[in-house]
Amino acid sequence: MSHPQPNNPLHGVTLEKMLVELSESYGWDGLAQHIDVRCFSNDPSIKSCLRFFRQTPWARAKLESLYLHHLQEGGSAPGRRG
């Protein structure tokens, strides 16, 4: 059973949503500057990035950190449009 997590800004946010929102905000080149991984700089796609981040915990942690920073800077929050 799932429990509400009101203090967890990542609760309910899928990896795909993070990637889509960040790629729209920063672009692939911008993401590659923030997180130095080949899936951002070598023929990037949501599908290839999803595969990489699901299999690479250290990189996923960096992506989640960047997403949280993005939210603090005024990016779209879960449940908000924009």
Rank of each mutant, 00 (worst) to 15 (best):
M1I: 00
M1P: 11
M1W: 08
S2R: 13
S2V: 12
S2D: 02
H3M: 09
P4G: 09
P4T: 14
P6A: 04
P6D: 02
N7S: 15
P9R: 06
L10E: 03
H11T: 01
H11Y: 01
G12T: 03
G12R: 10
V13I: 07
T14I: 10
L15R: 12
L15V: 05
L15T: 08
L15Q: 13
E16P: 03
E16W: 02
E16C: 03
E16L: 02
E16M: 00
K17A: 08
M18F: 04
M18Y: 05
L19H: 06
L19G: 00
V20P: 07
V20I: 09
V20K: 14
E21C: 11
E21H: 13
L22V: 05
L22K: 13
L22D: 00
S23L: 01
E24P: 04
S25P: 01
Y26N: 07
Y26A: 07
G27V: 04
D29R: 11
D29F: 09
D29S: 15
D29L: 11
G30H: 00
L31A: 03
L31Q: 05
Q33S: 14
Q33E: 11
Q33F: 06
H34E: 02
H34L: 11
H34F: 12
I35A: 14
I35V: 10
I35F: 11
D36Y: 06
D36V: 00
V37T: 15
V37L: 14
V37I: 15
R38A: 11
R38E: 10
C39W: 05
C39A: 02
F40W: 10
S41I: 02
N42D: 13
D43L: 15
D43A: 12
D43H: 14
P44T: 03
S45E: 09
S45L: 11
S45Q: 12
S45G: 13
I46H: 13
I46D: 15
S48M: 08
S48W: 06
L50F: 08
L50A: 07
R51H: 07
R51F: 07
F52E: 04
F53T: 03
F53I: 07
F53W: 09
R54M: 06
Q55K: 15
T56E: 14
T56H: 15
A59C: 07
A59L: 04
A59W: 10
A61P: 15
A61E: 13
A61T: 05
A61S: 09
L63D: 06
L63R: 09
Y67S: 06
Y67P: 06
L68D: 11
L68A: 08
L68R: 12
H69I: 08
H69Q: 11
H70Y: 06
L71Q: 15
L71C: 02
Q72H: 12
Q72T: 10
Q72A: 11
E73G: 13
E73D: 10
G74V: 01
G75F: 01
A77P: 09
A77W: 04
A77G: 14
G79P: 03
G79D: 00
R80K: 14
R80H: 09
R81P: 07
R81H: 13
G82T: 00
G82H: 04
